[in-house]
Nucleic acid binder design. Sequence first.
DNA 1: CAGCATCCACGCGGATACTG
DNA 2: CAGTATCCGCGTGGATGCTG
Lengths: 127, 127
Amino acid sequence: MDTEKSCTITEIAKCYHKSERSIRIVLERIGDKWSMLVLLLLAEHGTVRFHEFDNMIDGISQKVLSNTLKTLETDGLINRKVYPVVPPKVEYTLTELGTGLVPPVKTLVDWACMHSKDILESRQKHL
Amino acid sequence: MDTEKSCTITEIAKCYHKSERSIRIVLERIGDKWSMLVLLLLAEHGTVRFHEFDNMIDGISQKVLSNTLKTLETDGLINRKVYPVVPPKVEYTLTELGTGLVPPVKTLVDWACMHSKDILESRQKHL
DNA sequence: CAGCATCCACGCGGATACTG
DNA sequence: CAGTATCCGCGTGGATGCTG
């Protein structure tokens, strides 16, 4: 019943507030501050370690990075591979599912880049 | 300097935390609870009035709907047309900019519909 | 190195009541 | 009809310090 074959927006609107809806999950993941950035960095670099994320992403804290990675893993979008060595080594990669999400997200980001001026101008006007 | 022609993710990662970045603005808009639903409903219905949104969208409050519409207007994604009659009549439509955002978002929503099972299963596993 | 623990501030979203 | 006004709870994100 929650297979969500009914993908007309009008249908979705009637149960959108139920937080279990996967559409909400995906959109929330996209909207949370860092998830999509992590996803796209993985798409660009293939394999990334924790401290590499920390270096690449300016302004993120370790806790938030940790949470972001954990949630992405829970949602099946990234893999976490731990090497049993000292000092510890952990590598993150995209899953197949995560890889599939990259193109649509990239399209969106490209759109944002192209129309940044329009949006910022509109904001200026309405200030 | 904030023209954001540099659209490699690695570049974006270095200034992503600055909230003025339009990429963040767009992703936030997508991530906030109702904006994309409103956008897609407009894409499906063309013109929608305030109380029609209220009826179509289950679980939204008037205040939140009002805020959502206001922000979308500020960002230049929707138009607000007021008819000077009693009782008041206000119609919302997509702008050109907003119309352009629809296809990428729709792609994302379709992806979410198609892979909802995968995500929910993965969540189950990791609970 | 790759994190967890703790504490805190802020803002979003929700509920309810009121108005031009 | 199409909103505003007010109040409130909660969760996200941030800062700092500690650990296997």
